[in-house]
Design a protein around this nucleic acid. Structure first.
Length: 596
RNA sequence: GGUCCCGUAGUUCAACGGAUAGAAUGGAAGUUUCCUAAACUUUAGAUAGCAGUUCGAUUCUGCUCGGGACUACCA
C-alpha cells in the first residue's frame, strides 16, 4: 500500500479511536512533506478540527501519538501549525521499494474492460500537416497511451476531410497549372504537391477578383462570381453525381496526399487503428434529423431548412439541414458519433480538436442528449489552444505556417550538429548515429509540446524547442542513458545486482527515500493524468524523476560503495528509475536511447 | 453585444483550496579522483487590479483591466 493511503487509513482509525467520529476520506488530506520540513508525508489536520474540538497543534499531536503507538511503520513525527509531518522507518521504505521493483507490470493499471475511442489529427487533404496538427497528433497519441496504461482498450482513429469545395479547388489548379506533375515526376511529397495546387488556385482566384473589381464590380459580387470559383463549384456538383473523370482525378490526388501524410505520421512515430473518410460519412446523420423532427425537438423553416433551437440552453439556433436538403458539418458529426458508439460499444469517445470548436462540441453533446442518447455524456472534447510563434500567430496568408516536415528536418539537423559539437557519437556506426539524431530530435519536439497544459495557448520557439538542457526531452533521455551506462559498468565489474533480493534493514539516505517516493507516485500520476486527459502531468513527472536522480547521483557514490548489500540496493534503485522513465516516456511517445 | 478560454520571475512553463508560490532558461559566482560536464552547487527575480467565501485563495465567486477563440445555409 502507498504511504499516503496508509496514512489516510490509519488516521481514520485514529480519529475514530480518539474522537469517536467517522469522517469521510476526503477529510484526510495527505501530501508529500515539503523539502524544508522534516518528515516524509504530511497530514493536514484542519479538516479534523470540527470533531477533535481542539487546537490544530493539539489535534496533530494526538493523532501523531496515536499513530506512533499503534503502527510499526512510522518512525516519528513533528507538528508545525496544523500540519502533522510523519516519518517512515527505513525498513518501511525498503519493503515498499522491494514491492515496486518486483512488479513486472509496474505502471500498467489493471484492465477496466472499457473501450475508448480517440480521434485525432483530422487533416484536410488540400494542405500538408503543420505545427498545429503536430500538437493535436502528439496530444492524441499520448492520451491514447495514457488511457491504455489506465487499463482501457483504446481505438485511435483519424477522420480525413477528403471532400468539399476546397478539394475541388486543388484539383482544378492541378489541371490548369501543374502540367501533369506527379509526386514521382516532380520529386515533391504528395501532400505538398496538392497543397501547392491549392495555393495556386487561390492566386488565380485572387487575380480574377481583382480584375472584376477593376471592371467595376463590387468586391462582394466579384468574390462570388470569379470564373474559377464557379468552375470549382461545378466540379463539386460533378463529384457528388459521381462523374467518372472527376472522381478518378480526386482518387488519384488523394492517394498522393495519403502517401505524404503516412510519411509524416511515420516520421512522428504514430499510427491509427482506423481511418474514416468524410466522403464516406458525410451523408450520415440525416436519419437523426428525421428522428429529431418526429420527437419535436427540431423545427422546419418555411424554406425547408431544419434547425434546432438551443436558445433556452443559452446557445443559438443551430442549422442541421440546408434549404436544399443537404447536410452540414454538425449533421455529419451527429451521425458519425451514433455510428461509432453503436458499432464499437464505446464507453467513452475523445475528440482531440482545437479550442476554436468548443462551441461546436457543446452543441453536439446537447443535441445528442436531446435526441435521448445517454452516451452523449461520454463524449469528451479534448480542446487544446493554438500554437503561436515568437513573431505571432501562424497565418497561411502570410506564409508563416510552420510546416511539419520542414520542422522535423530542422530538428534532426540541429540534433546532429549539437551532438557532433559535443563529441557524443564516439564509435557509433552511421546507422546508429542517424537513429540517435532522430530519437533526440523527436524527443525534444514532443516533450516541448506535451509538457504544456493542452488548453493553454502555447508559444513555440524553434530555438528553445531544440534546447537540450533543463526541462527538456533530451535531458530525460540523457539521464536514462547515464543510468544504463552505470549499470553496464556494474555488469563489467561482475556485480550480480540483478538477482539481488532486497533485504530489510538498510539505512537509506533522505535522497534515496525521495526517489522511492517518486517511484511510488507513478501509478497515481497515470490515474490522475488519465482523468484529466493530460499527458503534461506525466511529462513533468518524468522530468522531476530525472532531475532528482541527477542530484542524488552527484554526491552519492554508487559504484564506489564498499558495502555489497548497499551497492546492490542502489543499483536496483537505479534500474527501477530507468524502468519507470522508459514507461513514462513511452506514454509520451518518446524513446530513450541506451547510449548517447 | 453574447458564450467560452487565458493572464504567475526578463522569457518559457509548474503548483488535488494548504506551510516560505516551484522548475527551466537568461544574469551573477562556483564544482573535474564511481557513470557520460547534455551534469551539479550557490545567488537575485513573479501570482494584472478590487471585493467576497474560507482557519487558509494562484486555485472558488463577483466586478474591472488586458490577450485570444467562437458566435456561417464553411468544414
Amino acid at each position: 500500500m502507498s504511504p499516503d493511503k496508509f496514512i489516510i487509513e490509519k488516521s481514520k482509525e485514529a480519529v475514530s479511536a480518539l474522537y469517536g467520529a467517522a469522517l469521510p476520506e476526503t477529510s484526510f488530506q495527505v501530501q508529500v512533506t515539503r523539502k524544508e520540513f522534516e518528515g516524509d508525508y504530511t497530514l493536514v489536520v484542519f479538516p479534523l478540527l470540527k470533531v477533535s474540538k481542539q487546537s490544530p497543534e493539539a489535534t496533530a499531536k494526538s493523532i501523531g501519538d496515536w499513530l506512533s503507538e499503534n503502527t510499526g511503520e512510522i518512525s516519528g513525527y513533528n507538528v508545525v501549525k496544523g500540519f502533522l509531518n510523519i516519518s517512515f522507518s527505513s525498513l518501511y521504505w525498503s519493503r515498499l521499494f522491494a514491492g515496486i521493483a518486483a512488479d513486472e507490470n509496474f505502471g500498467q493499471l489493471p484492465s477496466t474492460g472499457k473501450t475508448v475511442m480517440v480521434e485525432f489529427s483530422s487533416p484536410n487533404t488540400n494542405k500538408p500537416l503543420h505545427l498545429g496538427h503536430i500538437r493535436n497528433i502528439l496530444l492524441g497519441w499520448s492520451v491514447s497511451k495514457l488511457l491504455e496504461a489506465n487499463g482501457h482498450k483504446v481505438m485511435k482513429v483519424n477522420l480525413v476531410n477528403d471532400r468539399g469545395i476546397h478539394i475541388c479547388k486543388s484539383m482544378l489548379a492541378w489541371l490548369k497549372t501543374a502540367d501533369g506533375q506527379t509526386p514521382e515526376s516532380s520529386g515533391k511529397k504528395g501532400d505538398h504537391l496538392v497543397g501547392d495546387c491549392y495555393v495556386a488556385f487561390n492566386d488565380i482566384y485572387k487575380k480574377e477578383v481583382e480584375e472584376l473589381v477593376a471592371g467595376g464590380m463590387s468586391k462582394e459580387d466579384a468574390e462570388k462570381n470569379a470564373p474559377s470559383l464557379k468552375e470549382a463549384q461545378e466540379m463539386l456538383l460533378k463529384w457528388e453525381k459521381g462523374d467518372e473523370e472527376v472522381v478518378s482525378l480526386w482518387k488519384k490526388m488523394n492517394s498522393w496526399v495519403y502517401a505524404g501524410f503516412d510519411k509524416t505520421y511515420g516520421d512522428l512515430g504514430i499510427s491509427f487503428d482506423r481511418t474514416y473518410y468524410e466522403s464516406q460519412t458525410y451523408l450520415l446523420g440525416k436519419a437523426l434529423v428525421q428522428k429529431g423532427l418526429d420527437m419535436g425537438i427540431f423545427e422546419t423553416d418555411p424554406d425547408g431548412s431544419v434547425w434546432c433551437d438551443l436558445t433556452a440552453d443559452g446557445l443559438d439556433r443551430k442549422l442541421l439541414l440546408r434549404g436544399d436538403g443537404t447536410s452540414v458539418y454538425m449533421t455529419q458529426d451527429l451521425g458519425t458519433a451514433e455510428q461509432r458508439f453503436s458499432e464499437y460499444h464505446l464507453d467513452e469517445h475523445i475528440y482531440v480538436v482545437g479550442n476554436e470548436q468548443n462551441y461546436h462540441f457543446q452543441v453536439l453533446k446537447l443535441i445528442l442528449k436531446k435526441l435521448g442518447f445517454d452516451w452523449a455524456d461520454n463524449i469528451y472534447h479534448l480542446s487544446y489552444g493554438m500554437v503561436e510563434l515568437p513573431e505571432g500567430k501562424m497565418k497561411s496568408r502570410e506564409g508563416t505556417v510552420v510546416d511539419a516536415d520542414d520542422l522535423l528536418e530542422k530538428m534532426y539537423n540541429t540534433a546532429k550538429e549539437t551532438s557532433l559539437e559535443l563529441g557524443k557519437i564516439g564509435s557509433m556506426t552511421e546507422e546508429e548515429q542517424k537513429e540517435l539524431f532522430r530519437t533526440l530530435s523527436l524527443g525534444a519536439l514532443k516533450y516541448f509540446i506535451i509538457k504544456v497544459d493542452p488548453k493553454k495557448t502555447m508559444l513555440f520557439d524553434p530555438k528553445e524547442s531544440i534546447d537540450f538542457n533543463g526541462n527538456t526531452g533530451p535531458f530525460i533521455q540523457y539521464t536514462h542513458a547515464r543510468i544504463k551506462s552505470i549499470l553496464r559498468k556494474a555488469d563489467e565489474k561482475g556485480i550480480d545486482w540483478k538477482t539481488f533480493a532486497i533485504n530489510d534493514g538498510i539505512a537509506l539516505s533522505s535522497k534515496e527515500i525521495r526517489l522511492i517516493k517518486l517511484l511510488d507516485m507513478y501509478p497515481g500520476k497515470i490515474a490522475e493524468g488519465g482523468q484529466a486527459h493530460s499527458p503534461a502531468v506525466i511529462a513533468n513527472y518524468a522530468y522531476d524523476l530525472a532531475k532528482e536522480f541527477n542530484q542524488y547521483y552527484h554526491d552519492t557514490p554508487v559504484l564506489r560503495e564498499e558495502d555489497e548489500t548497499l551497492l546492490k540496493y542502489r543499483l536496483s534503485l537505479l534500474d527501477m528509475i530507468a524502468r519507470v522513465l522508459v514507461k513514462a516516456m513511452d506514454i509520451l511517445g518518446i524513446r530513450l536511447p541506451e547510449r548517447m
